[in-house]
Simulated scan of single mutants.
Amino acid sequence: MDIRQLEYFIAVSEELHFTKAAERLGVTQPTLSLQIKALEEELRVTLFDRIGKKIALTEAGALFLEHSAQIVRDLQNAKDSINDLREYRRGSLTVGALPSDLDYRIADLLIDYHAAYPNIKLKIVTSIEIANQVLGNEVDIGIGMMPVYDDRLVAVPLRREEYVVVVSERHPLADLESIELERLRHIPTVMYPLGYIGREQVEVECRRRGFTLQTIMETSSATSLIRLVKANVAATVQPGPLIETMNDPALRCIRIADGAPSREIGIIYRVDRYLGHAARAFIDKTIRHFKRP
């Protein structure tokens, strides 16, 4: 048994089709079939039930898949660890981030990281589904919303942030320091579309009070949303610290006095993923960045 056979077995398990798995691996179907047969003979079990052109994992196959996937991950982690040792301060890192935070929150973090590690190729991917990106190995590390409910993930809290009502300096409410959540029932707002985590955090709290936001316009762009507020189209409800980082004199933040919605931001990565020096350094800088006043 060798690692190539395990990779072949995993591919067939994922595709549940020998021809598709062979195409994916770049081998012929007879070669793939022989390797799986050799594996079954060595283990002395049947890994796949073959029903006509369809196949399915047997109970033994499902058990072997779990261990095979772990072995392949461990080998990849070992390779990554050795490469990290050999190519210290070199390599690449892919980070997932919420669009609004990328636009307004973490630019200074990226500048600071690049100054310390100029040879690391850093790629930032925006998404509202950070945990799924991490689980799918689309990104090495995610900066997203907590909590996460998956044993395969590690989530390191960064900070909890209360939402505030954000208006233009020309808005009728601009001079208020605080506002009751109930008043949002009658205030036109511009918000992210329904389904976005940030929007849902606010809507959940409103529904508890028996109403939904009076949203007159939706946009998935943080930049557009802020421009609409500055143009006095309507108010919005966003995390206070995020708005404060903009340092824009045309915006006013009004504290929600009674049970403000809140969000918790954290760093997310896979339990079984090897984190090299570049990744660990990014995590350390991110923690310190979010702890700043």
Rank of each mutant, 00 (worst) to 15 (best):
T19E: 04
D258C: 09
Q70G: 08
I141E: 01
T31L: 12
R90P: 00
L194M: 11
L122A: 11
P249W: 00
P239K: 07
G136Y: 03
V271T: 09
Q70Y: 09
I254C: 06
I10V: 15
Q35P: 01
D284E: 15
I287K: 13
E180F: 12
I243P: 03
A222P: 10
L34C: 01
A260C: 08
Q5K: 14
C253F: 00
I268R: 07
R159C: 13
I256W: 04
M1R: 08
F64N: 02
D175Y: 05
R160M: 13
G91S: 09
A235S: 14
L251H: 06
K291M: 10
G266Q: 03
Y163A: 14
T46E: 07
T94L: 07
R199G: 08
P99V: 08
V233G: 07
H67W: 04
R44C: 03
G210F: 04
R4Y: 04
D150Y: 09
P188W: 02
E59T: 08
I71D: 00
V72K: 00
F9L: 10
D80N: 11
L47H: 02
R207T: 08
E264M: 15
R185G: 02
D108Y: 12
S13N: 07
N132E: 10
L6E: 11
G144F: 11
S168D: 09
A281M: 12
T236W: 00
P293M: 10
T223F: 14
D284P: 01
R89V: 08
F18E: 05
R185N: 04
R86P: 00
I36D: 02
P193M: 04
A222E: 00
L93Q: 01
L43H: 07
R252M: 02
I71C: 05
I256F: 06
H277Y: 12
F282G: 08
Y192Q: 07
S100P: 12
R24W: 02
V204D: 11
Y196G: 00
K285M: 14
R170F: 08
D151Q: 14
P172W: 10
L153R: 03
Q201N: 12
L93E: 01
E264L: 15
L47T: 06
L228R: 05
A260P: 13
N119I: 12
I287W: 06
Q133E: 09
P193L: 10
D151C: 11
Q76Y: 02
R4Q: 14
D80G: 04
K291R: 11
E264V: 15
I51C: 07
D80M: 13
P172N: 05
D49R: 10
E15P: 01
G210K: 02
R50F: 11
I187P: 06
I265Q: 04
L213I: 05
S33E: 05
R105P: 03
S178P: 00
T286Q: 03
T286W: 03
T189M: 13
Y269Q: 02
D74F: 15
R263L: 15
R44G: 01
R24M: 10
A56Y: 12
A38H: 10
E180Q: 12
R292E: 02
Q35K: 12
R252F: 03
E15I: 03
L16T: 10
H289Q: 08
A231L: 15
G259T: 13
F64P: 02
P99C: 06
E244L: 14
L228S: 09
F290Y: 14
